[in-house]
Design a protein around this nucleic acid. Sequence first.
DNA 1: CTATTAAGGACAAAAAATATCCCTATTTTT
DNA 2: AAAAATAGGGATATTTTTTGTCCTTAATAG
Lengths: 162, 162
Amino acid sequence: MILKSQVEWALHCCAILAGLPEGRYLSTKALAEFHGLPKEYLSKALQSLSQAGLVHTTLGPSGGYRLAKAPAELTFLEIVEAVEGRSRTFVCTNIRANNPCRAPGYCEETPCAVARIMWEADEAWRDKLRNVRLSDLVEILSKEIPSDLWKRSFEWVLERAG
Amino acid sequence: MILKSQVEWALHCCAILAGLPEGRYLSTKALAEFHGLPKEYLSKALQSLSQAGLVHTTLGPSGGYRLAKAPAELTFLEIVEAVEGRSRTFVCTNIRANNPCRAPGYCEETPCAVARIMWEADEAWRDKLRNVRLSDLVEILSKEIPSDLWKRSFEWVLERAG
DNA sequence: CTATTAAGGACAAAAAATATCCCTATTTTT
DNA sequence: AAAAATAGGGATATTTTTTGTCCTTAATAG
Ligand code: SF4
Ligand code: SF4
């Protein structure tokens, strides 16, 4: 069970977009080049963010993406769920229904304890991601990334932002 | 990102084995029949449990599986990890290494904040599963499952346990 | 000796992830 | 008005993972 690589891509792209000045847009092409990713496929991840309402887009030259909310209002969970989906990681195939001792039609209304426990763990994972904001990430990165690299990256992005 | 169905199978099988009297064994065949699962494939899940040391096996007629520890000493996490593996759900493909502004060979020693945050969420998921014992599950099931079905299932298993 | 079992290797089928390609409508620039 | 660049999205292909089957081997109980 491994998350799609698009999750990583989306998180990194949002981190970049968080640093974009008000009203400017960054294209798929620039984001793909910056991260060394296949442009067409990265585009699918960005479309997921767009469909989830996390980013705003414009068409045409100088078009692209910007965040739809302030980084302090955007959680990791929103980004992860946008590309990975909202379904639970444990799916119940209802194997208890096959119990040969069971009276037919019985015992299938509510999920059993196994499923509930697994779903609780799932929820703990989501809670953790829900409590990290994109602004938290940017803050950590700004401290950890060497300032010259940080600055050059910022300039690289600005040159290409429409 | 969805857990293998073998996770569900393994949990249900452990729940059954937890009710097995001391010193007796239940075969793959019986477990597969009880749950309506393909015997050969379920066998792979049970082999995973065996390799992880969670169950004990014997060969020959009347052979099969029993728990290697008391249900109170067996956690959900152990069972889940036995079949699903211990690797993290977020894998870092190190895309920051492609940053065109970066000085070559720089900034690749430690995982970045993105990975660390995702791994923390992973750990929260594991913590939750680590804190549920197989005995907890059995206790809940014994309350929730209709007593006649519970009793008949128990007898069904005993008839086939070697 | 025979029947039954777990273990495990080889292989096959199905599903999901990872792309690539191409067309359309829109918008900016020229 | 024309041209160029963009997001969106459908169709398709490739690769990897999951799911499942089949068969052989060694051990064990009766
Ligand atoms: S509800 Fe419980 S018993 Fe039924 S399939 Fe899900 S986990 Fe298994
Ligand atoms: S360490 Fe961070 S930057 Fe590097 S690939 Fe992993 S998530 Fe991305």
